[in-house]
Design a protein around this nucleic acid. Structure first.
Lengths: 222, 222
DNA sequence: TTCGTCGTCAACACAAGAGTTGGTAACGTG
DNA sequence: CACGTTACCAACTCTTGTGTTGACGACGAA
């Protein structure tokens, strides 16, 4: 398919999309949801449109009535959640509360976003954005930028805590931030945020992560 | 290719392998090294034998003189390192030292293995073993088993520390172990263990991870 | 020099998957 | 009931990638 042209199915898709009918939108969202599940299970490359279509209860060709390409489907899975997380982090750091409380809330954002948008965030975690300098599309750029900004909120909060004496100053804030991301993001490998998926709740994770990070496991029983 | 049969190239490969010539072994190892790099950059599914062969400086068909399949190549990248880690963890926990010191050494094992066997461990990190219940091969089973055993050494050490009062008892040791794995394994996303790859050394990471985990960031400057 | 094996590769067969086409059946609306 | 829209799909093309074949030059040993 050439640059400016669009296939017939693309035209009909555009028409349906601009028509703004609730049914169409709803079904498209449902498709994205199903796709995200498959992406999570298989990874981007190994997930086939055949399987997605099958689980969606329709034919592979029909997917193109809702979405232009596999890549678009993947991107749909991610963008919304990332942007939302960014907004939340911004709101949290803007509050007039202690760095410790900010950090607690920031950690909660990461964990909760996995619950709320399950399985969207899983997809994002698995596909390494930094690993794709080759595909230097505008979308990729934006996502990398968003990730950096999110990281920034954590680092700024840590620095704030170091400045006011809440946090010790002999450890690199960058390394601490990465420790923190490690704890929270790695959950995608062992924790299923669905009822019955794990014997630990989201609150359990938030409690342990914040406790370990803020107080360490050496403290006396609280 | 049918079950018991083997292609001609497979026969010649077997012959070369049993011949035990140092040159052949060395070149095969070099191939595995190159393949691991590509796997790390692209992921298993997206890495093509074409690219691996190209970087290896030969034709794709020639790869089959050294290795039977893409999957075999992938498995070669992983097994050795995992087994070595397991041995080290066993030796560490068998020592007559404090749980704290055991934990410190265990963390060092994880980080150092990333340095020594870079980029092998990266590959292992990216391909989720637990995500492959479909391909229930013997090798997969073994790897899952090894992973569990490694986890066991960490959990046992944590329990030991809880028992002797070194560690607080109100946090799930499972969750703590997973926090710890998160910190260390997530490094594959932001840290390059090569000279000039990062401004943080392996020892920097080990120090911060152990400090954060054992003492927490709230302690006074040590 | 002759012969074998070593490492290589051009060329092929085969499979899987992405994206497109040109329809069609169903269904609501005039 | 006629008609347009909606959602769908059988069947195709095209691309990419894996694994195999058969042969060929190089090089060392007899």
């Amino acid at each position: 398919m050439k640059e400016g042209q669009s296939s017939r199915i693309a035209q009909r898709r555009a028409a349906a999309l601009s028509g703004n009918t609730p049914d169409y939108i709803a079904k498209r969202n449902e498709l994205v949801r199903v796709a995200a599940e498959v992406f999570r299970e298989k990874g981007l490359a190994a997930a086939s449109l055949n399987e997605i279509a099958s689980r969606f209860g329709t034919d592979r060709a029909s997917l193109y009535y809702y979405v232009g390409s596999k890549e678009e489907l993947f991107q749909e899975c991610i963008t919304e959640t990332v942007v939302l997380n960014l907004q939340r982090a911004k709101a949290i750091t803007a509050q007039d509360i202690s760095p410790r409380e900010k950090l607690r809330q920031l950690i909660a954002v990461l964990i909760n976003s996995q619950v709320e948008h399950y399985p969207y965030m899983y997809v994002y975690m698995q596909e390494d954005m930094l690993k794709k300098p080759s595909q230097d599309t505008e979308w990729t750029q934006t996502m990398v930028e968003h990730t950096r900004r999110l990281e920034r909120y954590f680092i700024d909060t840590l620095k704030e805590g170091v400045a006011d004496g809440s946090f010790r100053s002999d450890l690199s804030v960058t390394l601490i931030a990465n420790s923190l991301f490690g704890m929270t993001q790695w959950t995608h490998r062992w924790w299923l945020p669905v009822p019955g998926g794990s014997r630990h709740s989201a609150d359990d994770l938030i409690k342990v992560f914040t406790t370990v990070l803020l107080n360490g496991i050496e403290g006396a029983d609280a």
